[in-house]
């Protein structure tokens, strides 16, 4: 654990800033963002489009790097880590859920779920057994042979959540997980995430427009123009 970090926190970000260069123009996406998330929390980040939610999630997930600030997750310094270290960190510690599911269209649900296991080098039989168990947990054991094109939006998002969970990550980053779903499917996905959080203790960090999630969040933040502030929950 690096000095200056608090071991209570799964993720600890201090003074994060992100500036993009777009032609001759500098675009400030994040300004002095500090954030701490404990294990088992259901953290929600709300904010309008373009407020920097996705950028923050990408940085927290080691997909992108901050321009300034410090970031530690599970004891790893994500600012100083090499690309290879970040890749392994993502694989071993984080599950990702995206607005548009991001499933591979040529593979069925089970194949999509076990992809992270393949990345880790797990054996064939063990991978499939694990994938089947996870699909059962998200209520899709009867749809494992279906390709994304044969699944509804809600079902695809369940597959994406199963894929995010299959390696039992330290936390799951969900970027607008209900943004592409009708209200019934969205409620179903929210219920699933809450269930996984309560029942299995899976830590979620969810960026969303959906204010309903504030009601179930254990901690909440609002991001406006790249600045993060606490938001009320419940």
């Amino acid at each position: 654990m690096p000095s200056g970090t608090d071991s209570r926190y799964l993720i600890e970000a201090v003074g994060l800033g992100k500036v993009y260069q777009r032609g001759n123009e500098k675009v400030v996406a994040l300004r002095n963002v500090s954030l701490s998330v404990e294990s088992g929390e259901f953290a929600v980040i709300i904010g309008p489009s373009g407020s920097g939610k996705s950028t923050l999630l990408h940085i927290l997930g080691g997909i992108d790097r901050p321009s300034t600030g410090e970031l530690h997750a599970t004891g790893v310094d994500l600012v100083a880590a090499s690309d290879a270290t970040l890749t392994r960190f993502r694989r071993d510690n984080i599950g990702f859920v995206f607005q548009f599911y991001n499933l591979l269209p040529s593979f069925n649900a089970l194949d999509n779920v076990i992809l992270p296991l393949l990345a880790k080098g797990m054996g064939w039989k063990a991978s499939r057994a694990r994938g089947e168990a996870i699909l059962e947990q998200v209520g899709l054991d009867h749809r494992q042979k279906h390709t994304p094109g044969q699944l509804s939006g809600g079902e695809q998002q369940r597959v994406a959540i199963a894929r995010a969970m299959v390696l039992e990550p330290c936390f799951i980053l969900a970027d607008e997980p209900t943004g592409d779903l009708d209200s019934a499917s969205a409620n179903s996905i929210i219920a699933l995430m809450i269930d996984l959080n309560k029942r299995l203790g899976v830590t979620f960090i969810v960026a969303t427009h959906n204010l309903n999630l504030l009601k179930v969040a254990s901690c909440a933040y609002e991001l406006v123009d790249g600045r993060l502030k606490a938001a009320p929950t419940g």
Partner: peptide, 15 residues
């Protein structure tokens, strides 16, 4: 898109 996704979920360049 698929390759980016595979990178995100932990596929190394070698993989």
């Amino acid at each position: 898109y698929e390759i980016s996704l595979l990178r995100v979920i932990g596929f190394t360049q070698g993989k």
